[in-house]
Amino acid sequence: MKILLIEDEPLVAKNLENLVKEIDSSATILNTIGSVKEALDWFKQNPEPSLILSDIQLSDGVSFDIFQEIQPQCPIIFTTAYDEYAIRAFKLNSIDYLLKPIDKDELRSAFEKFKRLNNVESNGFKEQLTHLLHDLENRAALPKFKTRFTAHHQRNIVAVTIERIACFYRDEVIWIQTTDNQRLITDYNSLDEIEELLNPENFFRANRQFIANKQAIENYRTHFTGKIELKLVVLTKEEIVVSKEKAHQFRGWFELG
């Protein structure tokens, strides 16, 4: 099984590679790609893989843009934090739709579906997608996003509602900075972990160090390089910079709601 991995977060990509090897040691990761542009270039120069394992939200857009242009014939397993993309995923060659953080048993199950569908006629896809829709309807009944986070304040554990959170940031550990300028330590290991728990309408992953709350963004300006500099209602430890590649995505997100 030759797999193309499309994922823009290196730590998440590495974890997926490890899970793939644990589940199927004979599987080969052909390449790990982090953007729409890079993926389109790759497909122009390489034969199609057996299977695509793809995140939906990438650094310069969504992976649907890739597949609508190249229209691959091979199956796709989508990974994302949000159910909102489900219907669009099913219109492509999706054999499963896994919510992050990826569970090893769920990924194994997706691989088993892929292998079964390789041995049946194409109408197996339609039947499989019907089951997936049913599964997602059941998931929709569950709470999607956290509304408060616990953190350490002196010797106490406190609960911080998302309305009070100006940003999350990494500085050796993961911190919450509140709108009244408190800095609180969390027990989370990474911003990736926190990002999965946040409503993407309200929070934006600016870079590898910061996740910002839309309500806490006072203004922003575009640098001559194309990067965006954010100014929050609180003074942050360092400048919050959105890369040129994510600038368009940020502007669209900031204008919504």
Results as ranks from 00 to 15, higher is better:
K2W: 07
L4M: 07
L4Y: 08
E7F: 08
D8L: 00
P10H: 09
P10M: 11
L11D: 08
V12T: 15
K14Q: 13
K14H: 14
L19Y: 07
V20F: 01
K21E: 12
I23T: 00
S25F: 02
A27L: 08
T28K: 05
T28H: 01
I29S: 02
N31F: 12
N31C: 12
N31D: 15
I33Q: 03
V36L: 05
W42M: 10
W42T: 14
W42I: 12
N46E: 14
P47E: 06
S50K: 11
L51S: 09
D55C: 14
D60M: 15
V62N: 13
S63M: 02
D65A: 14
F67I: 04
E69T: 15
I70M: 11
Q71I: 12
P72E: 03
F78L: 08
D83R: 03
Y85C: 06
I87R: 09
R88T: 10
A89S: 13
F90N: 06
L92R: 10
N93M: 14
S94P: 10
I95A: 11
Y97K: 13
I102R: 05
D103K: 14
D105K: 02
D105V: 12
R108E: 06
R108H: 04
A110E: 01
F111M: 01
K113R: 07
K115N: 07
R116K: 15
R116Q: 14
